[in-house]
Amino acid sequence: MAITYLLNLFSNILNSNPASQNFQQDLKITWGNDRGKIVDNGQIMTLTLDNFSGSGFESNFEYHFGKIDMQIKLVPGNSAGTVTAYYLSSVGDNHDEIDYEFLGNISGQPYTVHTNVYAGGKGDREQQFHLWFDPTADFHTYSFLWNPQTVIFSIDETPIREFKNRESIGIPFPKTHAMRLYSSLWNADDWATQGGRVKTDWSQAPFTAAYKNFKADACVRAAGRTSCGPQTVAWMTKKLDGLSLNRLKWVRRNFMIYNYCDDTKRFPQGLPKECQVRE
Rank of each mutant, 00 (worst) to 15 (best):
F173K: 04
M70F: 10
P268I: 12
T4D: 04
L131S: 14
D201N: 15
N78L: 03
E101M: 12
A218P: 05
P174V: 04
P110M: 00
W235C: 00
R35Q: 05
G123Y: 05
T264M: 14
A80G: 01
N33F: 10
F207W: 08
P148N: 12
K265L: 09
Y118K: 05
G42H: 04
P206C: 03
V117M: 13
F144D: 05
K122C: 05
D124M: 13
Y111I: 11
D124I: 13
Y258F: 15
Q204R: 11
W191Q: 12
Y258M: 15
T150A: 07
S16E: 15
G81M: 03
Q24T: 15
S143P: 01
W191R: 11
E162K: 09
V277T: 04
T176W: 08
Y258C: 13
R278K: 15
D156P: 02
L185K: 05
S154R: 01
L27A: 10
T226P: 01
S89M: 08
G224Q: 07
S20W: 04
S107T: 11
K73I: 03
F10H: 06
G66M: 08
A119W: 07
P110T: 08
L145F: 01
C261W: 07
D263K: 14
N60I: 08
L14D: 14
H114D: 07
F173D: 01
Q269E: 15
D156L: 09
L88H: 02
P206H: 05
G92S: 05
V277N: 02
N105H: 08
L47I: 09
P148E: 11
N41T: 13
R266Q: 14
V251I: 15
Q194R: 07
I98E: 00
M236I: 11
G77L: 03
Q127G: 03
T226K: 04
D190I: 03
L6K: 11
Y260S: 09
P172L: 06
P135T: 08
T237M: 11
